[in-house]
Design a binder for these strands. Structure first.
Length: 344
DNA sequence: AAACCGGGGTC
DNA sequence: GACCCAGGTTT
């Protein structure tokens, strides 16, 4: 790397971070467990979204031991609405590994910490640098955007192999004495100044050391190829209430989309008719009315949902639960929307 | 390397 | 609508 401003860049970035950093809940600690939780929550998730989840999570699971012993349903209830629910299950598996294999102490080296469930190259580097102040790279989307501009790197960041270029760049650039502030500074800069569409270069502490700024078009970087086709599925959702006020719910499979979360029964349009479903699962349907229709957008998937409400008899099989019981179950956001609609 | 895995904010 | 976000796992 023939970048001539290594020393100046380090000093300016660390000084700026120390002076301008936001006051965030996980910045009041260096407890590796708490840093770990915050980093997992922050994967593909904005700071403002994470803050209330992090605070509530720490109230309920203040230590790694408490989390290790928690029922998965209670854990998932704390993750409800955050998305990517495998993060929560992997996190719990990870803390259990730490207790069983490392005596309850989060490993302080990349080799061991990377073996933990849900801890990839980024999260490993983030914990090592932020909790242990070790000069390890932690390359996320922010870091690739910032360094693609500072170093004028035009490789396609959508390609997996490109990340190695940035990891090696961080290894050269990182301030060995201030690893925590350096890594957080790169991310903070990406979040506040070096933003995707309209970077605030006039406010940037490392503008003088940024090649893309000198070249004139920092907003053209990073290079990122396109992708993705959106799938569209139409569902009817059936909210069945019996004479005792119980509702029929079901748990989703333990793998795949929204694994282990609970829902009201869904019928994919074009497979089974509502009438066929009713004959198989409930008896003596009385009132039947349409509740609401809405669209829920996932990353690469759209659900078009029509929710129906009906009163019927309790049959032999199926989970019929009170509203209080259902309120304690983790449900995906579209189901929460429906549940909300029937709380009259 | 590509696909899968949520949800919300922004332009 | 498309893009992005303090990514990791599975195929």
């Amino acid at each position: 790397m023939n970048y001539p401003y290594v020393i100046e860049f380090r000093q300016a970035l660390v000084a700026w971070f120390e002076s301008e950093k936001r006051d965030l809940p996980w910045r009041h600690t260096t407890d590796p467990y708490k840093i770990w939780v915050s980093e997992v929550m922050l994967q593909q998730t904005r700071v403002d979204t994470v803050i209330p989840y992090y605070n509530r999570f720490m109230e309920s699971f203040p230590t790694l031991e408490v989390l290790a012993d928690a029922p998965q349903e209670y854990l998932l209830k704390h993750w409800e609405g955050l998305g990517y629910y495998s993060r929560a299950r992997n996190l719990q598996a990870g803390v259990r590994e730490v207790i069983e294999t490392y005596g309850g102490v989060v490993p302080n080296n990349r080799h061991d910490i990377s073996k933990l469930k849900g801890v990839g190259p980024y999260t490993a580097g983030a914990i090592l640098s932020i909790a242990y102040n070790q000069p390890e790279h932690a390359v996320d989307g922010n870091v690739m955007r910032v360094l693609s501009r500072v170093l004028h790197i035009h490789e396609d960041i959508a390609l997996p192999k490109t990340k190695k270029i940035f990891e090696e760049a961080v290894e050269q650039l990182i301030d060995p004495q201030h690893a925590s502030s350096f890594n957080q500074g790169l991310m903070e800069l990406g979040a506040l100044i070096c933003t995707p569409t309209s970077p605030k270069c006039l406010l940037c502490p490392v503008r003088d050391y940024c090649i893309a700024f000198h070249e004139g078009e920092p907003e053209k970087l990073p290079v990122k190829s396109k992708k993705v086709k959106m799938k569209h599925i139409t569902y009817d959702v059936l909210v069945c209430e019996d004479a005792d006020g119980r509702l029929l719910v079901e748990q989703r499979p333990e793998t795949g989309l929204l694994a282990n979360l609970w829902q009201f029964p869904m019928i994919e349009q074009g497979t089974e008719t509502i009438e066929q479903w009713l004959q198989a699962y409930v008896t003596d349907v009385q009132t039947q009315q349409e509740l609401l229709t809405f669209k829920h957008v996932f990353s690469h998937l759209t659900w078009q949902i029509t929710a129906h409400y009906m009163r019927c008899q309790t049959p032999m099989e199926g989970e019929w639960l009170t509203r209080e019981q259902i309120a304690n179950l983790p449900m995906p956001v579209p189901m929460l929307k429906i549940f909300q609609a029937i709380q009259k």
